[in-house]
Simulated scan of single mutants.
Amino acid sequence: MNEVELIHRTGQLLGQDGRHWNPDTVRVTALVPDGSSRRFFRLRSPDGESLLAVLPPADDPSGPGEARAFQWIGRHLRACGAPVPAILGADAVSGLTLCEDLGDRRLFEEVAERGPAACLPLYEQAARGLARMQVRGARGFDPAWCWDTPHYDRQLMQERESGYFLRACCTDLLGLRFDRAAVTAECAALSEAAAAAPNDFFLHRDCQCRNIMVRAGRVWFIDFQGGRLGPLAYDLAALLLDPYAALPAGLQEHLTQVYLDELNREIPYDREQFQREYLLLALQRNLQILGAFAFLSQMRGKPFFARYLRPALDSLATLLASPAAAGFPALRHLTDQCRLEFERRS
């Protein structure tokens, strides 16, 4: 779909005539995505109206399914009162999705410019909004909307989190030799323990500062097309352990309590149980981050992600140093190997 076709189709989907969405007067700006292969465009009409157009990758067979998930899940979350952009129009054939333009300011830029402490009110707002979205978004959620998997489960953890880490980071990127049998057994035990957490809540699965927009002092969640049903603690871990932001431990602890206070306004949930689940799911999230960043930096040629590998390894080491993680010595040793290899290469 070229720019002229994009503008014409936008007008059709919005039910507006060609005088409003005219290729001669509408300005189209291509936006650069992070790790996604989707294509993003900002369309601005002469009267200043602006919206985002999202197209699936041209050569990815899963693209149409991902587009449908974005549309269905986005409408559902919006109806639940979650702070997500409005879906303004959708084309089932091309996968084109039109959505509200929330601007260019993300929580990522806020933290980078002002520091984590100054962004505390935004993070508190995000933690509360996340708790509400996870609970309310699960009500009436149809797993058939999901383009990937309908649930976050053990198979996903082992294949696309711990397995991703071992393959993309430890083997492909760093070329390490390690006791694969021992590490694989511990990863299996980790996933089994993590899978014991209740998993009937809405799971965003990539709730980090580059997926949170800030407009007029409010936070908005985006990139929810990978949403599915899953446990509570995973998304909070994604927010707090985010290597882009490097939140101090004290701030993480504070935000955990803010989150739990809001969660318990929605439903009763035992705080000690949550803390046990949090460690396990934080380990899973940390392994996923390392696998994804290694893959994107090496295989996709996106060096931006490489700079966050070492902070993510330090975060994983901190988690594994917890007494509650004493059952993962092989994984802890492998993490130390990774850190030493990064030091050798630097």
Rank of each mutant, 00 (worst) to 15 (best):
E110A: 11
F165H: 04
S191Q: 05
R177Q: 04
R78L: 10
T318H: 12
R160L: 12
G95E: 05
Y308H: 15
Y269Q: 07
T10Q: 03
D34I: 03
A233M: 13
D153W: 04
S45C: 14
G89D: 05
G65F: 07
L88R: 12
F108N: 12
R215F: 08
L6G: 04
V111A: 11
G230C: 03
D172M: 07
Q155D: 03
C207V: 11
A30H: 05
D34N: 11
L320Y: 03
K302T: 05
L120P: 00
T149I: 14
P243E: 04
L241D: 14
A138T: 01
N286V: 06
S62N: 13
T256V: 04
R276G: 00
P85C: 06
L309G: 03
E66P: 01
A131P: 01
F202I: 09
E192Y: 13
L77R: 10
I222Q: 13
S297M: 08
W72P: 01
R154C: 13
P83H: 09
M213E: 03
C169A: 13
L190V: 01
L173G: 02
Q208H: 15
R75H: 10
F40A: 06
S50F: 08
G163R: 00
W147A: 15
L340I: 07
A233N: 08
L334A: 01
D24G: 12
R167S: 07
G327V: 12
E49K: 08
A238P: 08
V54T: 05
D242R: 11
L287E: 01
Y244K: 13
D261K: 15
L176F: 03
F70E: 13
L13K: 10
R38I: 12
I289Q: 03
E253C: 12
E49G: 12
A294G: 04
V32Y: 00
Q252E: 14
G175F: 00
L247A: 02
R42G: 07
V214K: 06
E113H: 06
S37V: 03
V214C: 10
R75G: 10
S50N: 05
Y308N: 14
P329D: 06
D47K: 15
R27D: 03
A58Y: 09
P268H: 09
F202C: 06
Q16Y: 07
A321K: 11
A188N: 15
A197F: 06
L14C: 06
D59N: 08
L263A: 01
V111T: 12
D206K: 14
A330N: 10
V219G: 02
R228N: 09
A82K: 02
S191H: 05
T171I: 06
F224M: 11
E266R: 11
R271I: 04
A92P: 12
P46A: 04
F70Q: 13
Y269E: 01
P150M: 11
E124L: 12
G48I: 10
R75F: 09
A237H: 04
I87Y: 00
T97G: 09
A86W: 00
T184A: 14
T149V: 15
R27F: 02
K302V: 06
E159L: 06
L241R: 15
S191T: 10
A325W: 08
L287Y: 06
